[in-house]
Every structure is written in structure tokens, then in C-alpha cells.
Amino acid sequence: MTEKDALFEYLLRLGDNALILGHRVSEWCGVAPALEEDIALANTALDLMGQTQMWLGLAGEVEGAGRSADDLAFLRDAWDFRNLLLLERPNGDFGQTMMRQFLFDAFQTLALAGLEASTDQRIADIAAKALKEATYHLERSRVTVIALGDGTEESRARMQAALDAQWPYVGEMFAADAVDAAMVEAGIAPDPAALRPAWDGIVLPALHEATLSVPDSDFAHRGGKDGVRHTEHLGHMLTTMQWLQRAYPGATW
């Protein structure tokens, strides 16, 4: 794998994480439990879509095959996506959506802070922009997880169930592979494995405050960021997300 190939792969990971989570979160638009939450979720999704545009735009530029951010988003099949498995899982209830957001926001703020120091100025610039938004998202997802965990019996049970279901998908965020190694070597990106202690420092105290118990297992589902084995949910999601461009290729408005 050349450095250019690795960089392209890495940018797809950044872009696909934002795209897939952004699309999932946008599914709440109009059906969230309260108007304020509906607006908050829609705004979060909007930020993620903006970040997608920048990451996939740069990915297309690096690839040099004339593919735009839209081409990459709408014309690839499930096995070409490089997002974390955690992010493609269905939303579940509001508690599951916010738990997923919190687990990812904590990781994302750390990854983006590392990327701000990237030797690739284009990446550093996008990261600096995205970090401001991610930090704001984390502020909200953190307090929401705490409020729901340390809430009623019903909300606590749902948050514990959300944590138990999502915990096996946490490990993939920190699992480094050859693409990560090439990025670290070139000074382009931080080593994801090295972000774990800081992530624990954000997440564990919040879960404790939320009165939730952290599952006692390191088992990690993998296969999203390298595209080897996505869950069955991604394909279903893409049929909705990509439908218009697939049915009417090149449609614009």
C-alpha cells in the first residue's frame, strides 16, 4: 500500500464516520421525543454532513480519479464504506442514540485534536473546524447520558441496556491497523490506540455519574473501518440514503 492509498483509505474513514452517523442521526428529524431534542439532533446531523463534505471532498482530491464527495457518498456499495460498525447500527430508542453519540463524540474530539497537529495542512484545517463542532456535541451528549442514566428507573434501565449493547463496538475505534500505522509514520494522524486512556478519562467518570455499570468485557466487533465485514444494517441504510442517485443517476436540483 502506497502512502497515497493509505491516505485515501484514512480520509474515507473520517468521511464515512461523519456521513453514516450524520445520516443515522438525521433519521430522528421530525420524530424525536421533544421539539428541542428534534432540533438538537437535526443540528448535530447537519454539522456531521458539513464535515462529511470536507473529508470526502479531500478524499476525492487525494484519490485523483475525479470522484466528488457526492460520488463517494452516493455511488459506493456497502463493502466500500470505511465507517465504524458502532455508527451504522440502527438508532434504537433515544437513549441508545445518545449513548452512541457520547461514546463516539468522546473519541472524535480526541482524534480531531490529534489531527489538528497533522503534517498535512489540509487535514489540520478541517480538523480544527470539525473539533469546535464535536466539542459542542460532546458537551450535550455527555450531560444527556448522565441525566438519563441518573434519571428514572425506566431511563436508567434503557441507558444500561444501550451501554451493554454498544460496548462491544467500542474497541474498534482504538484498533490500529496498517493504514493507521502509515498515517502515524507520516505524521498525518494520531495512533488511535494511544487515545484510549484519554477516552477512558472522559467516558468512565461520566458513566459512573450516570450510575451505569461498565460491562466487564474487552470483546470488540471489527470489520467496519477496514470494510471487511459490515453489519447487515449498513446495506439497508444505504438503500434509503442512496436511493435517489441510484434510481435517477446524476439527478440535481
Binding site: E36, E37, I39, A40, N43, L46, D47, Y136, E139, R140
Partner: peptide, 13 residues
């Protein structure tokens, strides 16, 4: 504060 987000991305309620 009612919500960290509002009617446009730059506002809160």
C-alpha cells in the same frame, strides 16, 4: 438554558 441548539446552527434556546 432550554436547549443547546436552536433554530439555526449558530443559536441555542
Amino acid at each position: 438554558r432550554v436547549s443547546q441548539f436552536g433554530s439555526t446552527p449558530c443559536k441555542a434556546q
